[in-house]
Each structure stands twice: as structure tokens, then as C-alpha cells.
Simulated assay, not measured.
Amino acid sequence: MADTATTASAAAASAANTSTDAPPFQLGKPRFQQTSFYGRFRHFLDIIDPRTLFVTERRLREAVQLLEDYKHGTLRPGVTNEQLWSAQKIKQAILHPDTNEKIFMPFRMSGYIPFGTPIVVGLLLPNQTLASTVFWQWLNQSHNACVNYANRNATKPSPASKFIQGYLGAVISAVSIAVGLNVLVQKANKFTPATRLLVQRFVPFPAVGPAGDGADASGPPHAHPGAPPDRHVHAGEIETSQLEPEIARATSSRTVVYNKGL
């Protein structure tokens, strides 16, 4: 039985290896080498590629079926590595790896730029009022929290209270810092109008930074010892020998899978 499965997998790999423009396909593995900066850069470009937002339902079904055929050794002749990598990219961009359900479009990583950029622009708008400052900080933290939750590790259910606690902590922290810094800048009599305007432009950055720790409370854990490398669409794999000693001692696994974050 094992020999039959091995033969079928070898035949599938041989059929897929007809393309010279793409590396040999590996199910659940990154297409680009993660040992170099350029490889990791190309990997993240694939993750945030907004073109996957326009994939049709039919194309998604075809991609999923192609990967299933490869997995079971029933791949039709003539399928290239490029087609397999493209199918995996589509599936990982749209379907949650644990629930196999479609992720709501604004909360996909491929939607982070088109849906997140208007929020960033709003955060950096000049001469903001108290109401606009609160609104944009709330919207930013809400979007971040929803992205974290939509892409969470669903194999270990977390109570809703943890998500709510992290979300409220992030919003309150961001709004408090932004409003507080704006008030301090306005009261700084030694600043010229030009300097005051310049300093106000940088207020969103310290407000968003600390609040991100609270928003991450709603997201997935950062490491899953022993989990398969395709556990999470934004996960990376690393040898435990490369980790800090206290972390390496916490697991007997040779490798761990970690969340690369947003």
C-alpha cells in the first residue's frame, strides 16, 4: 500500500516537473527559499498579492481539486509546477487552512493593502479633530483585530472573551495615546505652527505601535511545535536548533511552525 502511494506521488511529481520556469512543487511548502531575504520577500509578495481577490469560485474549485489530485497521486499528465504553485497560492489566499472556509475578503492578507491603505491615509490626515482621531484609530484597530481573528489558528479554540479583551485593549490604548499626544502638541507653546503640524503627523505611529500588542491577543499563537508546515497561511518553519535555548528546550520537535504576523 505504501509502495503504491509512493509510486503515485513520484508519478505526480514527474508529471508536474515539466515546467522549467518554476521550482519543483512541494505541497504545503513555500515556493521561494526562506533562507534568504529575497526569498522571504518574494514569499510575502505572494501572500499579499491582491490579484487573488478576483479569483472566481470556479477557479478556486479547480485549484483545490488540482491540489487534491496531486496529494492522492491522481494528477493528470501535463500539469506543470507553475500550475501547482498557482493553485496552492489561490487556495491559501482564500481558504482558512483549519476550517477550509472562505475568509471574508477585507480580512484576507491579500486584501490588507487595498482595504488597509485608506485607513492608513485616514490616520495621517492633517488637522484632525478629536472625533476624526478617535474614528480612524478605532477603525484601524478594528480592521487589525478582524484580520487576526479571520486568520487565527482555529485548531485550538479560544474563548470570545479573550478576543474582546484584546480588541478593547487595543482600541483604548490607541485612542488614548493618539488623543493624549495631540493635546500635548496643541499645548506646546514653544512649537511653531509648522513644527506642530510636523509633530502631529507622527502621532499615529506611537499610538498604533503599543496598541498592536493588544490586538494580537485576538490572533493566533506565535508557535505551533510539531504542527505541519501548511498549518497557517502566514506561517514559517524553523529548526529548533536555531531558536533560543529556553525555547528549544520547551519542545522535542525538530522544527516548529510560527506565525509571521501581519
Rank of each mutant, 00 (worst) to 15 (best):
L262K: 06
R254G: 14
A250K: 09
A215T: 13
R58N: 10
A235G: 12
V183I: 14
K29C: 04
N151H: 09
M105V: 14
N182H: 15
Q33F: 06
G226V: 01
W138M: 06
I177L: 12
G209P: 00
H72N: 12
S142E: 11
T20G: 08
N127S: 14
F107V: 12
P210E: 05
L75M: 13
G214Y: 02
S158W: 00
Q34H: 01
K91F: 00
A63L: 00
G78L: 08
D230R: 06
R231T: 11
T4A: 15
A207Q: 03
N259W: 15
H96T: 06
P210F: 11
N148E: 07
I238Q: 04
K190P: 01
I90V: 12
R40M: 10
F191Q: 07
G169T: 09
A15P: 00
I94S: 03
Q26E: 15
V121F: 11
A93C: 07
L198D: 08
R42K: 15
I172R: 01
K102F: 00
R108G: 07
G166D: 04
E246T: 04
R254L: 10
K156E: 15
D46E: 15
R196Y: 00
Y149H: 05
H224W: 04
L130P: 00
N81S: 12
T251G: 03
R42T: 15
L95N: 09
V185G: 08
H43V: 01
L243W: 14
F44R: 01
G209A: 13
F41D: 04
I238C: 02
A215Q: 07
H222W: 12
R58Y: 10
P159K: 04
A93P: 06
P225Q: 10
Q65R: 05
Q88N: 10
A93I: 10
A160Q: 00
G219N: 07
L168R: 05
S218T: 11
D230K: 02
L53T: 03
F107W: 11
P204D: 03
S142W: 15
N144K: 01
S19A: 07
H43I: 01
S86R: 13
T117K: 01
Y149M: 02
N81I: 04
D49S: 08
G169K: 05
D230H: 13
S161H: 00
Y38A: 06
T80D: 08
Q186Y: 10
Q83V: 02
S14P: 00
F104N: 03
N100T: 03
P97W: 09
A154Y: 11
T52Y: 14
N151R: 07
G122C: 02
S252A: 12
Y112M: 11
P245V: 07
P118R: 09
G212P: 06
L84Y: 07
W136Y: 08
W85G: 06
